[in-house]
């Protein structure tokens, strides 16, 4: 088994996929860093004041002003109210949620890339794991060996898990290392609040507690890893089903982007919460953002994603061991 996995990793390595992904992340992170830096700079200029409390208070007032406008959709209003309660909580407890530093950047980066960017990168690796062998014809050579088919597929899947882990680690390390040049490398111990949950319009704070930022980040990356695995598994399934890598990529791409669009418009279509792509923003539960559909919670989303992943795995193995290869 070890050798099989090693063999698969070797293929991935030779194709330079991981290398390309690292390059992509390394190119994007400076971009985001610069954007974040500019944002910090303009808010400072606008306020003429560097005290974050004033800034947060100003944000709260701005939100209150927006809330008093009559032309506003209900779910947006709800979102703003939750945000407001949370900002007020931070302010009252004297916690700066935006303290500069590379760890904070990492956190913001991962929260914003969990539903699209990182799944896309994972997709690039997973999309042609099997289908390229089918379209290239090498699958015949692979299957003529005296190894059971499920073992071959399993070795491919394990290689996928390893590369997903590698991608997540690479994005963590790169975002930390690059943004730290601008923001400084400190700030791991900053306390952050988590455990917000929403019921209706209310922000439930009775489970709210503080954790240091390093733990917060570790938790968020754990969730990112999970999301990437699920997306990877589903791509893997498609890769087994379809011969064409382009088709696999197209379908996954459409699904992921549809998820990003749907999250903004499904608030009244309740059964949409069983779609995997609406559940990808797991980090929002940690930071206490409003959910796209009422009734969603961290546990719910984890289970939905898990079910989809298991379904994907079952289909992959069932099809791969049975299908005729020609």
């Amino acid at each position: 088994m070890n050798k099989l996995v090693h063999n698969e990793l070797l293929k991935l390595f030779r194709k330079k996929r991981l290398f390309v992904i690292i390059l992509i992340i390394a190119a994007l992170v400076p971009l985001f860093t610069y954007a974040q830096y500019q944002e910090v700079k303009t808010t400072r200029e606008k306020l003429g004041n560097v005290d974050w409390r004033t800034q947060l208070q100003q944000e709260i007032v701005d939100t209150q002003n927006r809330l008093s406008s009559s032309r506003m959709q209900d779910d947006w209003r709800k979102y703003l109210k939750i945000r407001l309660a949370q900002q007020q909580y931070y302010l009252d407890h004297n916690i700066n949620p935006q303290a500069p530093g590379a760890p904070t950047f990492m956190r913001v980066f991962v929260e914003n890339s969990i539903d699209l960017l990182l799944p896309l990168l994972v997709m690039v690796v997973a999309a042609d794991l099997v289908s390229s062998e089918a379209s290239g014809g090498t699958i015949k050579l692979l299957l003529t060996r005296p190894v059971k088919r499920w073992r071959i597929l399993l070795s491919k899947y394990l290689a996928l898990i390893l590369s997903v882990s590698f991608i997540v680690t690479a994005s963590a390390v790169l975002s930390y290392a690059i943004s730290g040049v601008v923001f400084g490398y400190g700030g791991w111990g900053m306390p952050l609040l988590t455990g917000f949950s929403t019921s209706g319009e209310e922000l439930v704070t009775n489970n709210v507690h503080l954790i240091p930022q390093w733990q917060y980040i570790l938790m968020e990356f754990g969730l990112v890893w999970f999301v990437c695995l699920v997306v990877g598994t589903l791509t893997f399934m498609l890769s087994v089903l379809l011969r064409s890598t382009a088709a696999v990529m197209g379908i996954m791409l459409a699904a992921l982007i549809a998820g990003a669009i749907l999250s903004n418009m499904v608030s009244s279509w309740e059964s949409a919460k069983y779609l995997f792509m609406v559940n990808l923003s797991l980090t929002d539960y940690i930071s206490g953002m409003a959910t796209p559909i009422e009734g969603m919670s961290l546990g719910f989303s984890l289970i939905v994603l898990l079910v989809w992943a298991i379904g994907g795995l079952v289909v992959s193995f069932a099809v791969f061991t049975k299908k005729d290869v020609f």
């Binding site: 680690t169 754990g222 969730l223 890893w225 961290l298 546990g299």
Partner: peptide, 14 residues
């Protein structure tokens, strides 16, 4: 490491 992170989420949140 990330598996540990995920486990921690479960422990912490639930």
């Amino acid at each position: 490491v990330w598996l540990a992170g995920l486990a921690w989420v479960l422990q912490d949140q639930f």
